[in-house]
């Protein structure tokens, strides 16, 4: 094949056509890319806009963690109105998964005024996240009152409990973070106490009665299946439990309540015991004296039993600290105040 023949052949024509088409396409796309490219900044602004509902200017805030149940991933302060936009990942979801949410925290006058919006960004292992409706998420805004800590019981309509917990944790984490940023950390008077592993210290309060006894209004944390219990325990001056009432049973169903230790439910197991007595039960852990109902504490309601047990241990172990405090600080006025504030 001579050179002349080659230039006249179909092969040459094909090559030329393909090259031309490619060149034209490439040039066209290059120009268009230059014209239409979306910059990272624009993309970010768009993402923020989508969450916020209107275009706003933001500044980045350094991230820090104030809550064990949530990780703050990103935080922005909205320049226009001073609100905060937090990306927070809540732990403790279904199957140990997490849920990442964008949360708009309404701030005015240097204090948190509410939650404007919660948007679910992503999740890990929460197969039923679609069942969390907007209605359920709106409850975060509706239910906000000062100092509230969201628990999964507050949020109805989201069927999957674990996912709900993770979302609540994310929102609580964001609230804690913003509060800390603004310097409004409510001092946690019980933080240094013993046996607080299962106690929701920020929700718990106490009052000192006239006869020197102390009544605790304890709110426990939820533990996997059972959600938090509310227990009122009165400790007299000798550190002995005189009154014990479960005001709110966190157990999920009657089946579980029925399997809880009867003495824990009505308090007969604790009443008349001081810390040493309760510690003995705790140390024995699994095998409680089965004199009461024959049910051992190792039943399916173990978690519920443990929550109540810890509440009792918390009350009996720590009551003397409060008494000392009260002596030093004019008769418990401050703790009372603290208590109401926390409620």
């Amino acid at each position: 094949m001579t050179v002349k023949q080659f230039f006249k052949s179909t092969a040459f024509k094909c090559i030329i056509t393909l090259t031309c088409v490619l060149l034209v396409s490439g040039i066209f796309l290059t120009i268009m890319n230059g014209l239409l490219a979306v910059s990272d900044a624009e993309r970010f602004e768009r993402a923020i806009n989508k969450i916020y509902g209107k275009s706003v200017k933001t500044e980045t805030v350094a991230v820090a963690n104030y809550n064990d149940n949530a990780t703050i991933d990103e935080a922005y302060r909205v320049k226009d109105d001073g609100n905060y936009l937090i990306k927070s990942t809540g732990k403790g979801g279904y199957d140990n998964g997490t849920v990442t949410c964008w949360i708009v925290v309404n701030v005015s006058g240097g204090a948190v005024k509410g939650i404007d919006k919660v948007v679910i960004e992503s999740n890990k292992g929460q197969s039923y996240i679609d069942r969390v409706s907007d209605k359920a998420l709106n409850q975060f805004t509706e239910l906000y009152t000062d100092g509230i800590i969201y628990t999964q019981d507050l949020i109805t309509n989201a069927t999957v409990k674990g996912t709900k917990t993770a979302i609540c944790n994310a929102v609580n984490g964001a609230l804690d973070f913003v509060n800390a940023l603004l310097g409004n950390v409510t001092e946690d008077i019980y933080a240094e106490f013993d046996f607080v592993e299962y106690i929701e210290t920020k929700l718990t309060s106490h009052e000192v009665n006239e006869d020197g006894s102390i009544t605790f209004h304890i709110v426990t944390k939820g533990l996997k299946e059972p959600s938090g219990f509310k227990v009122d325990i009165t400790i007299n001056a000798d550190g002995v439990v005189t009154d014990y009432t479960v005001t709110e049973n966190g157990s999920t169903s009657n089946t579980y309540v029925g399997q809880m230790h009867a003495g824990i439910l009505d308090g007969t197991l604790f009443e008349g015991k001081d810390f040493a007595g309760i510690e003995a039960i705790l140390d024995n852990g699994i095998s409680l004296p089965s004199d009461n109902s024959g049910t051992e504490i190792s039943t399916g309601a173990t978690h519920s039993n443990y929550l109540c047990l810890y509440a009792a241990a918390f009350a009996t172990k720590n009551y003397d600290k409060l008494i000392v405090d009260d002596g030093g600080n004019e008769g418990g006025g401050e703790t009372d105040e603290g208590g109401t504030e926390n409620e």
Partner: peptide, 27 residues
């Protein structure tokens, strides 16, 4: 377009248009 290479040519043209459509929509 010679018929021997028409499919590659079509694909290139369509791909270009789709890429353009993507850019347009994203913007």
């Amino acid at each position: 377009i010679p018929s021997a290479v028409r499919i590659p040519c079509y694909i290139v043209i369509i791909a270009t248009l789709v890429t353009f459509a993507r850019m347009f929509l994203e913007k």
